[in-house]
Every structure is written in C-alpha cells, then in structure tokens.
Design a protein around this nucleic acid. Structure first.
Length: 269
DNA sequence: ATTCTATGTCGAA
DNA sequence: TCGACCTAGAATA
C-alpha cells in the first residue's frame, strides 16, 4: 500500500533494524546483481523522499534506490537464513531479514544520480526540510486540474491516490478546479492537512482521514472497515453514500487513475 | 482455475 | 493516451 507514509515507515524500519550494522546483501531472484557489492558492508542509513527510499552504506558512494511502484513490498521479519519465498529481488540480513519483492526500481545509483532523482521531486509533506512554497508556485501558475497536480510527484512528493482524494474532500475542493483557481488560503490549508494526515499515517501505518464527528458511530450508522485498513470519506467508495451529505460518491478516470469525490460537498476553488 | 484490480511510474505513439 | 512493468489478493467461473 505504498503512498508516502508507507515509504517513510519503511525507511524508519530499515534504519532501526540495520543502521550501523554489517549486513548480508543478496538477490535471491538474481535481478539485482549489484546486491553482492554491498554484502559485508555497514549499512549507514535509509531515508525516504516522497515514494522513494535511498539506502546508503559506509565506505560506498553509491546508494540503493528503491521504489515500490504499485505492488512492491519490503518486509522485515525476525531471524536470518530464512527460505526465500517467491521472487525476492533484494534481501538484507543482520539479526533480521528484509525481503524486497516486486519493486518498480531497485538499483545502485551514483551520488549524482541520487541528487538528480531528488531534484525532480516536489516538497514532501513528511519531510522537515520541505518547502510548500515550491508546490504553491507550480499550482498557482497551472491550468491543470488540482486533482492531477496533487498526484504529480514534481509538484508534491509522496501524495498518492488515497491522500489526493481525501485531502480534496476534507478541504471541500472540486477536483477539476484548475490550479490557478486555487486560493492561497485554500492551498495553505491543504498543505497543513496533508502534513497532519500523512504524519498520522506514518504513526499508525494506515490512512485514516475521517474526522471524529463524521465517524459512523457519531452519525448513527454501523461501523465499517475499509479494505486498505483505514477509514476514508470517498476513496473507492463509488456509489456509496457520502459520509457527510449522503449523496452517492462519484468516480471518473483522470490521467489513467481513478478519482473519487462528492460533487455536493466539494465545490470550492 | 481464471480473470480482475490496485495506494505507481516510465516511455512509446 | 496507452501498454508495460510484475505481484498478490479478491472476484468470478
């Protein structure tokens, strides 16, 4: 379930398990041959930028760049010497075992290539060094719908389809509003909201966006559990009643991705 | 058993 | 805008 919070959690997990330790590095599947070059090195750090994770090693200028894509997983399990089940692209071992499967990217990059990757990304709401002003400049000058801008990693890094839909709903923004029609005040509120929501996502490991007053119990409805492990207003709730106004949630495809929204609640620019 | 779908990104047309 | 990438779980037969 990789949106930005998942990758920041992953970086934290890898850092806790391996930073400062000599690790075993291998590619059971064989498709990351450079894993052997890292074997026996001290893992220095793991850091997330948007949906990208960079793993660095002591005495080695290159870093491993990992991107999970749509269905990649990177799971840490207790113990070592475990059988490699399925297609394990990269395995790190030191007391525990981290297995990477199905990533969009797992590659060794030079410092210049790492920098170029990061330079292409917009501000990440989960990073303390993020500058929301950079995102505002892109949004303010654009005729592209805000729903598409939020998913553009060069505008904002780490926001995916769930946070996109939910932050638009929570701020009552009509998704097809052109970026240049978004007011400064609205953008500031959306950024603040993303920082809070995504930090909560890192803390809990789930995407929960429904305010207490709109929870089913508070609205006199039976509780429900969404299949992504959280509670949301509109994401994947097509044709179901809006939690606030009961209007059926709508869906359309925008730039190849499903967009969900409530046409009644979301009317602002 | 098979098909469908996905919280993502890239490159070709 | 579309297919490819490549995996797992859910839905369908």
């Amino acid at each position: 379930m990789p949106e930005g919070h998942t990758l920041h959690r992953l970086a934290d997990e890898l850092r806790t398990a391996y930073a400062g330790r000599v690790v075993t590095s291998s590619s059971p599947q064989g498709r990351f041959a450079e894993a052997a070059r890292l074997d026996g090195h001290v893992l220095e750090d793991a850091e997330a930028w948007g949906k990208h994770v960079f793993v660095s090693f002591a005495d080695l200028p290159e870093q491993v760049h990992v991107h999970l894509g749509l269905y990649g997983t990177f799971v840490v399990a207790a113990g070592t010497g475990l059988p490699a089940v399925g297609q394990v692209r990269w395995r790190i071992e030191a007391g525990s075992t981290a297995d990477l499967r199905g990533p969009n990217a797992c590659e060794l990059l030079t410092p210049e290539e790492v920098e170029a990757r990061i330079d292409r990304l917009g501000p990440d709401p989960l990073r303390a060094d993020a500058d929301p002003e950079r995102a505002w400049r892109r949004i303010h000058g654009s005729s592209v719908p805000i729903a598409a801008l939020l998913m553009d990693q060069a505008v904002l890094a780490g926001v995916g389809n769930v946070y996109r839909a939910e932050v638009l709903f929570r701020n009552e923004v009509a998704p097809m509003t052109a970026g240049r029609r978004i007011t400064r005040k609205r953008w500031d509120a959306m950024w603040t909201d993303l920082v809070e929501l995504m930090r909560e996502g890192v803390r809990t490991g789930r995407i929960d966006t429904v305010r207490p007053e709109h929870e089913p119990e508070a609205m006199g409805r039976p509780p429900r559990a969404d299949d992504h492990g959280g509670e949301v207003y509109v994401y994947r709730r097509e044709r179901q009643a809006c939690l606030v106004c009961e209007t059926p949630v709508r869906r359309r495809v925008l730039a190849g991705r499903n967009l969900f929204w409530c046409a009644t609640c979301q009317h602002r620019g």
